[in-house]
């Protein structure tokens, strides 16, 4: 099984290090982007962004609407071909090795993306199936996910009947059904209350503790605080990059909201 057995061997930089210190051995990064650019005609949606994400890190990818976050994430997960620049995901090149990348990543889009007319178990079976998991593996995974989320009573209920917060947590669990090394979350918690978001983030932490790298875009500044490091995009460029504490210091304020507003208004 991919990834699953390798976890123990991996370094788990829970206290993350500054990216520059890693440059000597770049293979240890889960995500590397160097001058990554996407142009649509005259319009430059993503303008030469560079950043590295360490394994097991929770990396927040922030930006105003239309700043180019979704375009950037699409290039990283192989849904869109970069115009220029380099990037590698789990050590695989985004131009040439998209197939390997796909096997090593999980993805949860901003639209809640499970099949509402299938039951919980059927959704797990389907997504496990398209990643080529064995029937036995799908069975154990199903039990695991159901137990983890406490959904025992609802296994055979249609996903459409679940409350939104549960759907989102289920979608996250399913994004990790094939034990990917990196999980990309595109605004995963839209439309739910802070308490439910908190529960969702507990799941993210558990995954990160197991060595899974998390790349997450969000609008909520309280969520930004949960990340090990964040980058803030403005008009296609990364204008700030660092831990929440560093950024607050850099912009001489004590809230992420202020950091964000200062950058976006500038």
């Amino acid at each position: 099984m991919r990834g699953a057995h390798k976890r123990e061997e991996r370094v788990q930089p829970r206290s993350w290090q500054k990216p520059e210190e890693h440059k000597t051995k770049p293979m240890s990064y889960a995500i590397e982007a160097q001058n990554l650019t996407k142009r649509f005609g005259d319009f430059t949606a993503v303008d030469a962004i560079s950043f590295n994400v360490a394994q097991g890190e929770i990396f927040g990818f922030l930006g105003a609407n239309g700043a180019g976050k979704t375009t950037a994430i699409k290039m990283l997960i192989g849904l869109s071909r970069p115009t220029e620049g380099d990037a590698s995901i789990a050590g695989f090149d985004v131009y040439r090795e998209t197939d390997q990348i796909k096997e090593n990543i999980g993805y949860m889009s901003q639209k809640f993306s499970l099949y509402e007319d299938l039951t919980i178990a059927e959704n797990i079976r389907f997504y496990g199936g398209i990643y080529g998991l064995s029937r036995k593996r799908i069975k154990t995974k199903t039990t695991e996910i159901i137990q983890e989320l406490g959904l025992e009573e609802y296994v055979n209920r249609l996903v459409g009947d679940l409350p939104l917060g549960w759907k989102q947590r289920l979608a996250f669990a399913i994004a990790g059904v094939h034990d990917p090394k990196i999980i990309f979350l595109d605004e995963p918690t839209g439309g739910v209350d802070p308490a439910t978001r908190r529960q969702f983030w507990e799941m993210i932490y558990e995954a990160a503790d197991r060595g899974v790298t998390i790349f997450v875009t969000t609008h909520y500044m309280d969520e930004a605080e949960y990340c090990n490091r964040i980058s803030i995009m403005v008009d296609g460029r990364i204008e700030a990059l660092g831990s929440p504490a560093e950024l607050k210091q850099q912009f001489q304020t004590d809230s992420m909201d202020e950091v964000f507003l200062k950058l976006v208004r500038a």
Partner: peptide, 11 residues
């Protein structure tokens, strides 16, 4: 519903 993106991200 966004499930297409998930399918396209899969192998």
């Amino acid at each position: 519903t966004g499930t297409m993106d998930l399918l396209l991200v899969s192998p």
